[in-house]
Design a protein around this nucleic acid. Structure first.
Lengths: 343, 343
DNA sequence: GGGTCGAAAGTTAGCGTTAACACTTCCGCC
DNA sequence: GGCGGAAGTGTTAACGCTAACTTTCGACCC
């Protein structure tokens, strides 16, 4: 009379089973799991074979209990709902961090922390070290989340320069200022004389650095700064469009525009088209990000590529290092000019 | 001679500390943690007070070890890289599930499973039940991930109807067919006579249901089906634009178009504008999704809202129920017509 | 008054892993 | 030939929690 239930889930193998199979002690198996120091090649091979044979996977809960490490890190979604849904960079970063962490076998826990209520809810979770560290996107807008993390004594790494630089906070950014300079030099070298810019909010990602880069090159090339050629958007498509309209009104003779994000650049392209001007013949447009929209526009966008892959990797590396006891660090990564049709 | 290190991290309080503080046994504290059955009101209060006073947070690793439950669920990113970055619905769903799960105090682990290599890597992780269940987005394209989950014996819920319906698979979808009908009836009732449609790929989200809804209403209203009025895109902006161009060539007299996604509708708007026609006067445009782009277009999009909030909630509820032992179920949620400027 | 029952509480045995410790070898060296 | 040390291995005590088991204590009923 066999069991009627098809095949009941028999317990997964434990380190004990592996030890028995390999003919060694649990301790030796554990040592192999930790990297195999002080284990003879023969034992190592035996254990490896046993692990494969049994399909053994370490029980993270048990490990976590004794090591007092969660073995996972959090990605904090600190953005408000609306913004979250629109930023193509967030998706890119999230994907990059997930992949980078997978390489280290560290699960990524997604945590919503956009509202005050959410922050209150997760505070005990973080304080109790249910994760070993946290990754932050766009930490720039306000610092409540950062305060919380510091108070919890949890290692964390921001993507983007945090506003409050008082404490030593780890962060990874693209070189916004130099990137802006590169784009500007490209426009100048292409013979453009009246170059406008649509900057982002000074407290947003990139901060005022991209605007600063714009000014740097004007100075460098001895071009007079004209404040009529500067507009400030909020990184949304709509703001890019309205800023461009304003610029075209204030300075109809402009022949290029450096836009601080691709999304705004898309809006700008639209405004230019509606004004009956052409890109790039009348007006050259340079973006920033090389996000997914850059290839979707007509014409496609010439833009500065942010090295998201490397940014993710560095954030993860920095975070893991910090968890291991390293001090905070800041990493600045170079951007790359991607030439397409708009300039 | 006090310690020089500022304030070393003293151990967080354990259930033992709480018991001592409350003057009860560990068992009683645990019972309170489980919901407080068979605990006298007095003890319950004492334990609650102790928990608050000590700032106690349960150690999930220890709990997990003894309950043989991970206490977390996975969100599987089964999309290839490029698509992932562009789908506004994914971000919405991800956010919704995170929030819904937070309510149940269940962490969401993000797992990349878009490539074959990634799938191979996570297979043991899933088989070893390092998560209690999985949430899937867009399971439609192929079933390798589903096979893997079934093999691992892990409960899971899909967003969208899975292609392979052989096994009984839990899924949650918006009522695509009825939604399409609603939009179509709206267009017909508005006096449109030649209504075209841009459908999505039949193996994509929404499948052929939205196209079916289109045909349903034609039949219902005794309008002859004209295959020149049907184009098939791939849900991208670019495909919406090119499909619309085709439609305008094949049937210049069309006076409305029902587009199976907002992103494609955005492309369609563009094609219409370029063709020198106006929306909604010449041509009415109806979208599907009510994603973030719907309010960003000019004119804003009339569209069918997918109830992402409820979809997330139901997915989470279903998954948790399944983890508790319930059988699979399918949930179909109604969509809602959102009237804006394009129709 | 003895028996039964159930609620409320205490007691205890693990859950699977690691890390600290203890124990053998075995090698090289004085 | 004894001694120190290192490499390899086994042994064991936690880690914090839950669940099953036991105990206590009244209430209630015949």
């Amino acid at each position: 009379m066999t069991d009627t239930v098809p095949k009941q889930n028999k317990r997964p193998p434990t380190i004990h089973d592996v030890a028995a199979q390999a003919g060694v002690s649990r301790g030796t198996v554990s040592r192999v799991l930790q990297g195999g120091h002080n284990v003879s090649p023969a034992s190592h091979r035996a254990v490896d074979a046993a692990i494969r044979k049994l399909g053994y996977v370490v029980n993270r809960a048990a490990r976590s209990l004794v090591t007092r490490r969660a073995g996972s890190v959090a990605f904090l979604l600190s953005e408000a709902h609306e913004r979250l849904f629109q930023d193509p960079n967030l998706a890119t970063l999230l994907r990059g961090c997930t992949t980078a962490l997978a390489e280290h076998d560290v699960p990524l826990v997604l945590i919503a922390a956009g509202t005050e209520a959410e922050r209150r809810r997760i505070a005990p979770y973080l304080s109790a070290h249910q994760v070993d560290g946290a990754l932050l996107f766009n930490s720039n807008r306000g610092t409540p989340m950062i305060d919380l993390l510091q108070q919890a004594g949890l290692p964390f790494v921001c993507c983007g320069k945090p506003q409050d630089q008082s404490g030593s906070i780890s962060y990874v950014v693209a070189d916004d200022r130099e990137g802006a300079r590169t784009m500007m030099r490209y426009l100048v070298d292409a013979g453009r004389k009246r170059i406008a810019t649509i900057a982002g909010p000074s407290d947003g990602p990139g901060g005022s650095d991209r605007l600063q880069g714009y000014r740097d090159v004007l100075t460098e090339r001895k071009i007079r700064f004209d404040k009529r050629l500067v507009a400030t958007g909020d990184y949304s498509r709509a703001s890019g469009e309205s800023c461009m309209r304003d610029l075209l009104t204030r300075a109809p003779d402009l022949d290029a525009v450096f836009v601080a994000s691709d999304l705004m650049a898309e809006g700008a392209l639209r405004a230019i088209e509606r004004a009956g001007r052409t890109v790039p013949d009348d007006i050259a447009v340079g973006g920033f990000d090389d996000s997914s929209v850059a290839t979707a526009t007509i014409p496609t966008l010439t833009t500065m590529r942010q090295p998201w892959q490397r940014i993710s990797d560095m954030m993860v590396r920095q975070l893991l290092a910090q968890i291991e006891g390293d001090g905070p660090a800041t990493v600045i990564l170079p951007t790359e000019l991607v030439i397409r049709d708009s300039a």
